[in-house]
């Protein structure tokens, strides 16, 4: 493949990232990123959940199935959960899911769990930029994608 062709293909790939953010820390962190006018690509779309522990692994799988190229779960830092212990459940549950994704052939890098506090607007932008960079390198997610579902 010609180099030029390859780059044009890469440019054409616009990844879709679904981010589940907890209401108390990460969603507020995303708000702060906005208020501070920090830039991150428009590919990231945020879904608000009360706590990161509300995210069912099924939601992550559904996103991959419907064509998301990357999924992020962001919650309060361990120990800072608004509901005391919610993010500990998140951590345990998604360590397992990460292994399962790896097992079924979805690159681990497509799935990120991170802790972003309400004061960390810049971290929010940095995490999203990092995720996009990784997903850009991996290219489109084809493994779990439902072919009937056209984006």
């Amino acid at each position: 493949m010609l180099l030029e062709e390859k780059t044009s293909q890469e440019q054409a790939f616009e990844p879709l990232i679904v981010a589940f953010c907890c209401n108390w820390c990460s969603y507020a962190g995303a708000d702060l990123a906005g208020t501070s006018r920090l830039q991150y690509p428009a590919n990231v779309k945020i879904i608000k959940v009360p706590c990161s522990c509300r995210v069912n692994p099924n939601f992550v799988l559904r996103a991959f199935q419907k064509g998301a190229d990357g999924v992020v779960i962001a919650g309060c830092h361990p120990g800072d959960c608004h509901y005391s212990t919610g993010n500990y459940f998140t951590r345990r549950r998604f360590t397992l899911l990460m292994n399962m994704l790896d097992f079924i052939g979805i690159e681990k890098e497509r799935f990120t769990v991170d802790w972003i506090s309400a004061a960390e607007g810049s971290k929010f932008a940095a995490v999203m930029n990092g995720v996009l960079e990784k997903v850009h390198k991996l290219g489109p997610n084809r493994k779990m994608r439902d072919k009937r579902w056209k984006r």
């Binding site: 879709l16 679904v18 779309k45 879904i47 959940v49 509300r54 069912n56 099924n58 939601f59 559904r62 996103a63 419907k66 064509g67 998301a68 579902w149 984006r151």
Partner: peptide, 10 residues
Amino acid sequence: IMAEVDAICF
């Protein structure tokens, strides 16, 4: 939440 995921991945 599933409906939101579906709508975003539209």
